[in-house]
Amino acid sequence: MARVIVVTSGKGGVGKTTTSASFSTGLALRGFKTAVIDFDVGLRNLDLIMGCERRVVYDLVNVINGEANLNQALIKDKHCENLFVLPASQTRDKDALSEEGVEKVLKELEHMGFDYIVCDSPAGIERGAVMALTFADEAIVVSNPEVSSVRDSDRILGILQSKSRRAVEGREAVKEHLLITRYAPKRVEEGEMLSYKDVHELLRVPLLGVIPESDDVLQASNQGSPAIHLKDSDVATAYQDVVARFLDEDRPLRFVNYEKPGLLKRIFGGK
């Protein structure tokens, strides 16, 4: 059985696509056959973050409309053997996504032997976002430690609990995970930023991980290589931890406490 995981947030710019790219890569690196689907029809960007933008020929809407089959549309990732990207259409709008169409694509991916299907949701709570979460078995809610992001996360949790297929059919609820991104331990320490404990307490969803704020994320997207591949990067390590925890491995939280730089570091600088 394939597991469908939606990466969602309500608010834009919090790190959904960055997370979808790194999380799906992490699952593939662990040996699972993984597909990652961009649901942001009209504003596709997952292809850029994954570095496969020049290999896009067909997209999700083409497959839904029967203009191409899945084998033609799926793009094999250049780094990972088991990872495939299904890009969004750039020319259509989100009305091109039908519930039956999306269901058909997901069923077919399951028949192709995929273990995990990661759905990268667009921002907002309109059609694209609802389509991305409709068939989810699990949800990763990405939130920044910031008021508007936390509020929107709560809103999207409500939508998961009312509009997902699991909720509508009264089956076991979608398994929710909270992922806090762009976390700055120093600012938390100084009382300028909500702590991960605060956000967790407010949203009451099990915490999957905390990704530190880092310049590395921009470096990764510049090159079109998911952040999890970065060498010697806290962000990459944090995403590897996230994947491990998702697979029920025990990993303590890292990068959540601020360590004052030592004297040498203060004099000579360094990251």
């Binding site: 008021v147 936390v150 509020r151 938390v188 009382g191 300028e192 909500l194 702590s195 605060d198």
Partner: peptide, 9 residues
């Protein structure tokens, strides 16, 4: 400000 944010939220 973080505690103000938490209370408002």
């Amino acid at each position: 400000t973080a505690s103000v944010a938490k209370e408002r939220l």
